[in-house]
Simulated assay, not measured.
Amino acid sequence: MATGETGFDDVTFDLISVQYHSLKAGHDYGQYVRDARNAGMDDIASFFEQVMSEDSERARRCHEFLGRLQGSAAAGPATS
């Protein structure tokens, strides 16, 4: 596996990126849910809640995978 200038291999970097964006989006979706509820659009609020839940699960799975990679040679020197 290649290790870039960051000291992380591509897969570790990719997982961290997906986890970050999932968590960031989850934070933003909270506002979207409030906006939709305030507008009386409960079906759209429910959609945003579903998307938020999916991103939360995605972030959790990334965390799980990163835990498996931590300290392994495959993850690059930054995680050793």
Results as ranks from 00 to 15, higher is better:
Phe8Thr: 12
Phe65Tyr: 13
Met41Trp: 11
Gly7Asp: 11
Gly76Met: 00
Val33His: 02
Gly76Tyr: 00
Cys62Ile: 00
Ala25Arg: 10
Ala2Arg: 13
Arg34Ile: 15
Cys62Ala: 00
Asp43Gln: 08
Leu69Ser: 00
Ala73Asn: 05
Asp35Glu: 10
Asp43Trp: 01
Arg37Met: 10
Thr6Trp: 11
Ala59Trp: 00
Phe13Cys: 10
Ala2Met: 14
Ala74Val: 11
Ser53Phe: 07
Phe8Arg: 11
Ala25Val: 15
Thr12Ile: 07
Ala75His: 01
Ala75Asp: 03
Cys62Gly: 00
Met1Leu: 14
Thr79Ile: 12
Phe47Asn: 08
Phe48Cys: 03
Gly30Ala: 05
Ser56Glu: 04
Tyr32Arg: 13
Tyr29Glu: 04
Ala59Phe: 00
Val18Thr: 14
Met52Gln: 12
Asn38Pro: 08
Val33Gln: 07
Cys62Met: 02
Ser53Val: 08
Asp35Arg: 09
Gly40Asn: 07
Cys62Pro: 01
Ala78Met: 13
Ala75Trp: 01
Pro77Cys: 02
Asn38Trp: 07
Arg58Val: 07
Tyr29Asp: 10
Gln19Lys: 15
Asp42Ala: 00
Ala45Arg: 06
Ala39Asp: 09
His27Glu: 08
Ala78Phe: 01
Phe47Ser: 06
Tyr29Val: 05
Arg37Cys: 08
Gly7Cys: 09
Phe8Lys: 13
Gln19Leu: 08
Val18Cys: 14
Met1Glu: 13
Asp35Gln: 07
Met52Cys: 02
Asp42Glu: 07
Ile44Asn: 06
His63Ala: 03
Ala39Met: 09
Cys62Tyr: 00
Ala74Gly: 00
Gln19Trp: 05
Glu5Ser: 11
Asp9Trp: 02
Arg58Gln: 04
Gln31Thr: 13
Ala39Lys: 09
Phe13Pro: 12
Asp42Phe: 01
Pro77Ser: 06
Val51Glu: 02
Ile44Trp: 09
Ser72Val: 10
Asp14Pro: 08
Tyr29Pro: 04
Arg37Asn: 12
Thr3Tyr: 02
Tyr29Arg: 11
Gln31Lys: 14
Tyr20Leu: 12
Lys24Phe: 10
Phe65Pro: 05
Gln50Gly: 02
Ala78Tyr: 02
Ala59Cys: 00
Phe48Pro: 08
Gly71Thr: 04
Tyr29Thr: 08
Gln50Pro: 02
Asp10Glu: 13
Glu49Ser: 04
Leu69Tyr: 01
Ala36Ser: 07
Arg37Ala: 02
Met41Lys: 11
Met52His: 08
Leu23Arg: 07
Thr6Cys: 04
Thr12Tyr: 00
Thr3Arg: 12
Gln70Phe: 01
Arg34Trp: 11
Val51Met: 07
Leu66Gly: 01
Pro77Ile: 13
Gly7Val: 15
Gln70Asp: 09
Ile44Phe: 03
Ser72Arg: 05
Arg37Ile: 15
Thr3Ile: 15
Gly4Ser: 05
Asp14Val: 14
Ala2Tyr: 12
His21Pro: 12
Leu15Tyr: 02
Asp55Tyr: 06
Phe65Ser: 07
Gly4Val: 12
Tyr32Pro: 03
Met1Tyr: 13
Ala75Cys: 03
